[in-house]
Amino acid sequence: MIPMVDLKTQYHQLKEEIDAGILAALDNTAFVMGPNVQAFEKEAAEYLGVKHAISCANGTEALHLALEAAGIGPGDEVITSAFTFIATAEAIRYVGAKPVFVDIDPRTLNITAAAIEAAITANTKAVMPVHLFGQPCDMAAIQAVAERHGLKVIEDCAQSFGASIAGKQTGSLGLAAGFSFFPSKNLGAYGDGGLVTTNDDAIAAKVRVLRNHGSEVRYYHDVIGYNSRLDELQAVVLRVKLKRIEQFNAGRRHAAHLYSELMAGLPLETPFEDGVGVHVYHQYTLLSDRRDAIMAALQQAKIACAIYYPVPLHQQKVFAADCQGLSLPNTEAVAARCLSLPIFPELSDEQVREVVAVIREALAA
């Protein structure tokens, strides 16, 4: 059996350090906003090359807090991708704004500057590019459009921790950004966790107040905020893993490149790296007209696989009222053909070859 992600193997490799850190945190008994949370924020800011890294409860909350701190609210429109997890659009809805979905590039699977510019209206106030599956968007082009039209850029980095463009980390390129530490992420906790990054002092100050019940001084509340804090024990895990993120991402890239090398010439499309940035392969997603046959063969061989995402957001019932008649051909075609294979730092060459052998046999049938 080959899983989508092997958290158990990774835990056993890190067990001694993680267990010691958790036991020390338990003994210290500073469970909320404790020293590990503070240390992780400092270490994450240094790694990502940002002035401020503010932890929170999860990735959805990170996007929500970033949008609210940036002043996005009712009546505003935020342009984003329809080919992403619903959290991207949920966060926009949480602040009372309207997500405006645009089509993706059929190779990078990310939104483009041209698609963004074509969707701008008088109500557009922000753009939320999603660095999908770990492939950075073309941020220089997107920023140029945003600057021309006076739009704020909030990056969705839920899948791109460690991805970079010209030496700059995703999460350091817009006004603010949101990261997720869901266990399967490139940098994953052992539960939920999130992070807001920004170089803007005012945005950072607002996020810190909003995540903690609207309070800067205990029991004094200036605004209605949220209970959105990273758990101390999760911070212990994240600190251990952050030291190894380059190694982890290198392992993912090695496995991904071996997949693509071994599947060259097969009647399917392997992930495209546009060379604009460094792809960190949160998912390894291929495109095939014979997806169902490949899935059935993998499942028969006890190899995990998944469809991210079978129904684009503009076709979801919850957004039906806003998206009547909206056609996004590239998004719809990709959703009908995409399939994600196992990918994690510890994936062996032998396991990659086993997965590809099953796919090759399925396509030959």
Rank of each mutant, 00 (worst) to 15 (best):
E41S: 14
T108M: 09
V355M: 01
Y219H: 11
T84M: 04
V236Q: 09
E16V: 04
N212L: 00
Q234G: 14
H257V: 00
E117L: 07
E77L: 05
M263F: 03
T270S: 11
A357P: 02
I294R: 05
A176L: 12
L151A: 06
V223A: 07
M128F: 00
P106R: 06
N199P: 14
E261I: 04
I54P: 10
K51T: 14
H254G: 07
V196L: 10
T84V: 00
L175E: 12
E16T: 11
I79F: 04
S172F: 04
Q283K: 06
D292P: 02
V236P: 11
F181H: 07
S348P: 11
N330E: 14
E354I: 00
E68G: 05
P136F: 10
L109G: 05
Y190S: 09
K302G: 03
Y11I: 15
A357Q: 10
A256F: 08
S228D: 14
L48G: 10
A166H: 12
I54W: 04
A119D: 13
L286D: 01
I2H: 07
L287G: 09
E332R: 10
A235P: 13
D201W: 02
P267S: 10
N199A: 06
L132I: 15
A301K: 14
R290D: 14
S340P: 08
Y281T: 14
Q351V: 08
F344D: 09
K51L: 01
E261W: 06
A301W: 11
T80V: 02
C56Y: 03
E17Q: 09
L363T: 07
L262K: 15
G75Q: 07
T331D: 05
V127K: 10
K206Q: 15
D105C: 01
V334G: 07
D27R: 08
Y259Q: 06
L238N: 07
A256E: 04
D138C: 03
M128Q: 02
V276I: 05
I359Y: 02
L298V: 08
P136A: 11
V318L: 03
K152Y: 14
V130M: 02
A333K: 12
E61D: 12
P74K: 10
V145F: 11
S184K: 11
F133P: 04
Y47D: 13
R337D: 05
